[in-house]
């Protein structure tokens, strides 16, 4: 049976999937700009990001309409809310790609400089995690989403590697401080990409299993967490 709400949910889902692929593409482009030292690519990222912003507005509008006209409940409601939250995270990924492209512009002025291996590894990891998160959404696959949550720590470690090496590089050769700082900035932005991918995976778990796993480990470790757990 097709319900009136089904095509509405379907449309939202298509919109967020398109927005997600665009975010993946723009992240890829910003990283290509870094690794190929391509200033022209870096400049394109800025334009592409505007399209992501436009898509976020379209999703906001569609979400408000869906809530107003369909008054969704249960898993329908969780889907609509998750899509709204995902749109926010995907839009942020676009902004982060733009930041990376800014670093790419600066780094392109120094075509001879070495790029750290750690940055490549981190870039691959972050991209892979974003891809997994978006895939887990497109298939409503809670298992895959849970794997994304586990992977987040790996990215943190990679980021720390890059930062440590960059700081060492600065003390070895202060003349290259500007480049090393950009490596740190790119690493930081990539780590944030993975954070947003984690949020997306958490949204998928909210949709599929009706569990809110946000801040789960942090809150579980809080000694005050034992109280106030009832349903008041």
């Amino acid at each position: 049976m097709t319900r009136i709400v089904d095509p509405v949910l379907d449309d939202l889902r298509q919109k967020i999937l398109r927005m997600g692929s665009l975010a993946e593409a723009i992240l890829q482009k910003s990283l290509d700009a870094i690794f190929k030292r391509d200033a022209a690519l870096a400049r394109e990222v800025r334009i592409d990001d505007l399209e992501i912003d436009r898509m976020e507005l379209a999703i906001d509008e569609a979400v408000l309409r869906a809530l107003a006209t369909q008054a969704p409940v249960a898993d329908d409601l969780r889907k609509v809310v998750a899509i709204k939250m995902m749109a926010t995270d995907i839009e942020r990924v676009g902004d982060l790609a733009r930041n990376i492209a800014k670093s790419a512009l600066r780094l392109s002025e120094d075509p001879a400089g070495e790029l750290p291996d750690g940055l490549r590894i981190l870039a691959d990891e972050s991209r892979r995690i974003l891809r997994s998160a978006l895939d887990s959404f497109s298939q409503y696959d809670a298992k895959r989403a849970a794997d994304v949550l586990d992977d987040d720590d790996v990215v943190d470690e990679r980021q720390d590697d890059v930062i440590r090496n960059a700081i060492a590089g600065i003390s070895r050769n202060p003349a290259r401080t500007s480049q090393e700082v950009d490596f740190i900035l790119v690493a930081k932005n990539l780590e944030r990409v993975a954070d947003h991918a984690t949020n997306i995976a958490e949204d998928v778990i909210l949709v599929t299993e009706a569990r809110n796993v946000k801040h789960a480990s942090k809150l579980a470790a809080d000694p005050g967490a034992a109280e106030g757990d009832g349903d008041g």
């Binding site: 319900r3 709400v5 969704p72 249960a74 898993d75």
Partner: peptide, 11 residues
């Protein structure tokens, strides 16, 4: 069954 009813999936 509750979900199916409140989301209009009953048929």
């Amino acid at each position: 069954r509750t979900r199916d009813y409140i989301t209009g999936r009953f048929g």
